[in-house]
Amino acid sequence: MAAKKITTPLTDDVVRSLRAGDAVEITGALYQARDAAHKRLVALIEAGEEVPFDLQGAVVYYMGPSPAKPGNVIGSAGPTTSGRMDAYAPLLMRHGLKGMIGKGLRTAEVKQAMRDEVAVYFAATGGAGALLARRIVGNEVIAYPELGAEAVARLEVVDFPAIVVNDCHGGDLYEEGRGAYARDV
């Protein structure tokens, strides 16, 4: 399956062109954020304050890397379970977030917000952190360095491989893929 090449920030047109099951290769900036960072980002928005990066068209990568060895851009860098960010994701989408990269199931509320706000959820391969790190060419912590692996970083990626799980049209690869291969025993 040939991968679609896309660049960030994402536009509504690009998001609308993506369908569940599409393989993509992403180039541009991704914002690394997981549990503790999301809690802080949402608190800022709720307090009417600025978040530390431009959310318009942004793609967030649910990931907390291992420490970079000397000379390396980043340590291993695969996705974490997205469901822990479900409580925060709809608000971020309402403020411009267009893409999320992680692994695992999303709630009905998150999937509805993706339809309402025109956003997309990608899965990267969980447990392939050494391989995925090779597609990350830049790494700058931009907020909350005290959180260590949970800090917010701006990552530059080239041809970062992912697959569309939930599109903005209601497509859901986790449901469709499972349905296609389930069988009775």
């Binding site: 692994k103 391969t125 697959i163 690869l173 986790y174 893929g177 499972r178 296609a180 389930a182 069988r183």
Partner: peptide
């Protein structure tokens, strides 16, 4: 037989 498959993608 659940059909979940590698990474849950079927």
């Amino acid at each position: 037989a659940l059909g979940i498959g590698p990474q849950g993608l079927g």
